[in-house]
Write a protein that binds this DNA or RNA. Sequence first.
DNA 1: TCCATTGATGTGAGCGCTTACAAAATGGAG
DNA 2: CTCCATTTTGTAAGCGCTCACATCAATGGA
Lengths: 347, 347
Amino acid sequence: MPRDEIQVSGRVTIFDVAEASGVSYGTVSRVINNEPHVRETTRKRVMDAIDRLGFVINRQAQSLARGQTHVIGVLVPDLGTGYIGEIIRGIDDELDHAGFDLMLFTTHRRAAKESNYVASLVQGVVEGLVLVLPRNPADYLGVLSSRNFPHVLVDHQGVDTTSPAIGTTNWQGAFLATEHLINLGHNHIAFITGTMDLGCAQDRLDGYKAALSMHHIPQIPELIFEGDFFQNSGVAAANALLDLAVPPSAIFASNDVMAMGAMDVIRHRGLRIPDDISIVGFDDIPQSAMVFPPLTTVRQPLEQMGRVATQVLLAMLKNPETKNSRQELPTQLVVRSSTCNYKDRAG
Amino acid sequence: MPRDEIQVSGRVTIFDVAEASGVSYGTVSRVINNEPHVRETTRKRVMDAIDRLGFVINRQAQSLARGQTHVIGVLVPDLGTGYIGEIIRGIDDELDHAGFDLMLFTTHRRAAKESNYVASLVQGVVEGLVLVLPRNPADYLGVLSSRNFPHVLVDHQGVDTTSPAIGTTNWQGAFLATEHLINLGHNHIAFITGTMDLGCAQDRLDGYKAALSMHHIPQIPELIFEGDFFQNSGVAAANALLDLAVPPSAIFASNDVMAMGAMDVIRHRGLRIPDDISIVGFDDIPQSAMVFPPLTTVRQPLEQMGRVATQVLLAMLKNPETKNSRQELPTQLVVRSSTCNYKDRAG
DNA sequence: TCCATTGATGTGAGCGCTTACAAAATGGAG
DNA sequence: CTCCATTTTGTAAGCGCTCACATCAATGGA
C-alpha cells in the first residue's frame, strides 16, 4: 500500500532496482557506476528499471561505503558585498566541473564560529576546505595542517606559512595605482590603509610607499590614514584628510568600499570628483563601475582566485603529495572617471 | 604504524572510543547523543577518550543510520549583486540555529542546471530545498510537489500555486513609491518594468498604475518602458524616456540596478539628480546607499525573507502536514536623495 | 531476604551502497 | 564436443553509526 511513499524520500534502493530488473544488486551497482563488465542487454534492462522506479542514488550511503563525500566546504565571513560572491562563483564553477558539491559556511565575522566549524567539519562530510578571507586563521590552521587536512586559503597572505594560499599581487596593484596618480601630476597623495593585521593591507601600503619613493616624492605621515576596510573608516579618513592644512589632491583607498565612503564626504563638502580631488580604490567590486563617477580602481581577479584555489585543492585531494602551492594572481589597474590630471583640476 | 594516519581522515570511530574507555560502542553512541541513561562516571570516561583520541562523529554514517542528513539545499541563480547574498544571510543564520548545514547550488542563470540539480538532489543528501529567485520553476516544481519534497520559494510569486513561497508586497511598495513621487508634485512619472514574466514585475507595474489612477493621473503608455532587471535596460530606458517630446520629471525603476543605469544616462546628458529629474529604485541593495546621490528606493526585507522561508521549510520538515504557507513580507519606502519636490527642480 | 523496578550497559541488525572474491555463463580453439 | 580463458553475474562483508531489544546491576519496599 505505501507504494506511493516509496517515492517520497529516496526509498527506492538498488535492491528494488535489482528485483525489478531481475539481476543482483551488485550488477545494479555496476550499471550505476558505469563499470565495464556488464552485458549491454543487462545494462539496458537495469537502466529501464531505474527510470521506471525513479531510482536516485543515495549519496550518503555511497559516501560511507566509498569513504569519500565529494563535498568541499567553503568558509566565508559574509556574502554582503558581492566581493566574496565573485570568489564563490569561481569556486563553484570549478567544483561543478569536477563533480563536487559545495557546502557553504559563513561566520558572519564571528571569529568563534570559524574555529568551531573547522574543528567539526574536518572529519565527516567535507573532504576539503576553501577558506575565504579567514579572519583568525591562527586558531585552526594548525589543526588543519597537522591533521593533514586538505585546505587552501584565498586572499590571505598573513602570518601563516604552511598552508597553500591564493592571493593577488597587492603590492604591485598599489604601486601601479599610485604611479597612475603620480603620472597624472599628483604629488600630494593620501592613502587609506586597511586592517593592518592583514597581510594584504600591509602589502598595499608598501606598494604605495614604494611608488612614492620611486618617484622621489616624500612620504608625509599625515597623508596616511589607518582604516579598517569598512565604509565608515573611509568617511572618517576623508574628513581628517580634508581638514589638513594642505589637503591631498588625490586619495587612494585600500578598498573600494572605503573609497566610496570618501567620495561621499568629498561631495558633501561641495568638492567635485575628480576635478577637485581624484579617488582610487582597490578590489573592483561590482558596484564600483556603477557609482558616480565610476571608480578608478585596482581589479582583483576575484573569480579567478576562487577558480585557482579550487584547482589547487582538488589537486591536493587527488594527490596528497602535492606540494603546497602559494600563488599570487596579477592585479590590474582599471582607469575610470574618478581620477584626472592634476593640472586639469578646477580648484 | 599508521597510528598517525588514524587522525588523517576521521578514522577514529566509536569503536575506538569504546575500546579506549572500556565500554561498548552503544554506550559511546549514547554519550555522543546526550542520551539520559548513562552513568555520570561512564559519561566522563567516554568524553575523555573522545578528547584524547580526537574523535569526531562521521556525519555520513549518522545520516545514513538516522535517515536524515540535516542538510538543506539552497538553489540560487547567482551571487553577484549582493541581493541574493542578503537572502542567504537570513537562510544561513536560521539554519545555523536549527543545527542544519547549508549546501549551496548556483545555476548561474543556466536554466538547464536548475532542473538537473533539483532532480538529483531531491533524494539523498538534501532534506529540503530553498529556491531563491527560481527562473524556470515550472520544470521541476511539479516533481517536487508530487514527490512531496519539502521546499519553499523565495521571491517568486509566479504561475505556480501549490508550493509554499515567501515574497514581498511588491504591489504596495510600488504604490508607495509612486505616491511618494506624486506627493512631491510629479505628474509625469515614467516606469521601467522588470522581466514581465515574473510575478513581482507585474505586481510592481500594477502598483505604479494603481497609484496613478488613485490620484487621477492619466497613464501615458510612452512613459512605461519594458526592462529586464539588468543595468543595460535601465540605460536603454532612460535614453528612450529622455528623448520623448515631453520627458518625465521622475523615473521609477523596477529595481535598483536599472535605476543606476538610468542615473548614469541622466548624468551623461548633463542633467542633475534630483534637481532635473527624480529617480526611485526598488530592492534597496547594499550599494544603493552608496551611489550618488543615495537612491530613494523600496526596501525589500531580504534577510528577513530568507529567514522566514527557512522557518517555513523547517516547520514542514518537522511536521509534513504543515499547511503550505505563502507569505508576503512588507516592503518599505526608503527616501534618500534621488528624489525631490517637483517645484524645486532647477530645470 | 527476596522480588520487582528502574537504570545502565551490551548486542544484533540494518541504513544503502561498494568492493573484493567466488561462481556461473559464454565463446573460441582444439 | 570438450576444455580453458574470458566475460558476466552473484554474494559476503563492511563503511560508521543508530535504535530496539536483551541483559545485567542496583535499588527499595514487603
